[in-house]
Design a protein around this nucleic acid. Sequence first.
DNA 1: TCAACTCGGTGCGCTGGCGTACAGACGCTT
DNA 2: AAGCGTCTGTACGCCAGCGCACCGAGTTGA
Lengths: 249, 249
Amino acid sequence: MIAHHAPPPHDPRQNHLLAALPADEYAHLLSHLELVQMPLGLALYESGMQMRYVYFPTTAIVSLLYVMEDGASAEIAVIGNEGIVGVSLFMGGETTTNRAVVQSAGHAYRLQGLLLKDEFNRAGGRRAGTMQNLLLRYSQALITQMSQTAACNRHHSVDQQLCRWLLMSLDRLPANELIMTQELIANMLGVRREGVTEAAGKLHAAGLIEYHRGHITVLDRAGLEARVCECYTVVKQEFDRLLPEAIIP
Amino acid sequence: MIAHHAPPPHDPRQNHLLAALPADEYAHLLSHLELVQMPLGLALYESGMQMRYVYFPTTAIVSLLYVMEDGASAEIAVIGNEGIVGVSLFMGGETTTNRAVVQSAGHAYRLQGLLLKDEFNRAGGRRAGTMQNLLLRYSQALITQMSQTAACNRHHSVDQQLCRWLLMSLDRLPANELIMTQELIANMLGVRREGVTEAAGKLHAAGLIEYHRGHITVLDRAGLEARVCECYTVVKQEFDRLLPEAIIP
DNA sequence: TCAACTCGGTGCGCTGGCGTACAGACGCTT
DNA sequence: AAGCGTCTGTACGCCAGCGCACCGAGTTGA
């Protein structure tokens, strides 16, 4: 019992983008990476606000939301340990029209925007750094996710979208339990809370999930996959294709 | 009357991205730019297909569509002379899950993908070429458009979306007339043809548009702007912010 | 000139999701 | 132990948009 309460083993390489960097580029960044807590509901960015940092989630999950003038919202994309929050920084925009909110509490490593830009633009012996290549391919994966979200919003039912949402969250979590009320899910999907209650009720009746006051446990992942719309699969396959070095297990 | 029937004055710089390039970078590309006709309905890319060229529209308009397994479709983004079709090429993905279809006939200049990549990665005396900077900012604008489309699909009515669609098309055309059947608009928006008929009927009744068998004339642009949802404005402002050197008049 | 086709208009019943309202259940606080 | 706030379940009317069916007016081509 020499050391109990050892600090949890945080490692930037829990983030798949950081893990995919070659040793030299990683070393370059390491000293500038700062571990931060990501409590549920924290807004990393607000629409139009200057972004100072980018975030590499390890255990946290972040949602990109668009919030309309009347307060209604819609989730545009989800970012977990496979990605980076703040692509607008290296795209050159400095701000987005989206809000970035912590959807599942955990940790992330953050990096000053300026440092990321330097690394992005650093052209060594090769034409461009691995970092640039990696970030661009991730951005395309993110674009795919957004475009699929647009199509899914147009054509698929709340039931199907709930399945998609659960699976996408599950892919980015170590456990099969989500801490998330139906009300919050409704905000993400941009639907009524009652709609989520009803859809979740069906999944429960089918024995796929169990839930209780803000805790959702997935019992039968395969069952969800059988019900989900094509959108989930398309996005996942595209991520795997674009970022083979960072495949989510 | 020395020269009648002079060839129409095609110029790559009708495309705002090309026009925004500094002289040396433009000169680099010029000899490789190839003028192509873009007939209505032509598919530049299909989902998952290798992309050989990128396209810089001058008078044509291109829609990015996602086509679902059941054949239903949804427009993800629109690209006219303010942009470039084929961002996936320099993002590193080579393919997209989207289909790119000519929505309004006209012309574009195309460029071999490999040449574009070279130009994108060319680091001269400066850290990175203007081209890279420009294309990345355009990509972010495109991301904004996609994300707004997702939100709009979730929350806004067909009426509003039709206004948005008309205005976005109008911004990319020299005239105030569109060649487009209601059926095709319905495909783009991912709604029923009858829904478009009804929405268009309202706009007609309000004296904003006139149409007749595939020809739509906008009579009162300000009237459309008064009815459109916020999505149109948000996207347009973001384009102007990100690409001040390529503002659509 | 007539037939075939395309485009747009209209009507009808259906349903998914919305807004609203309310009630029970759980759990934390005091 | 009581009380209050949060989370979930249910119910009811309403409406936008869907699927379908049909029709008339233009346009094109033989």
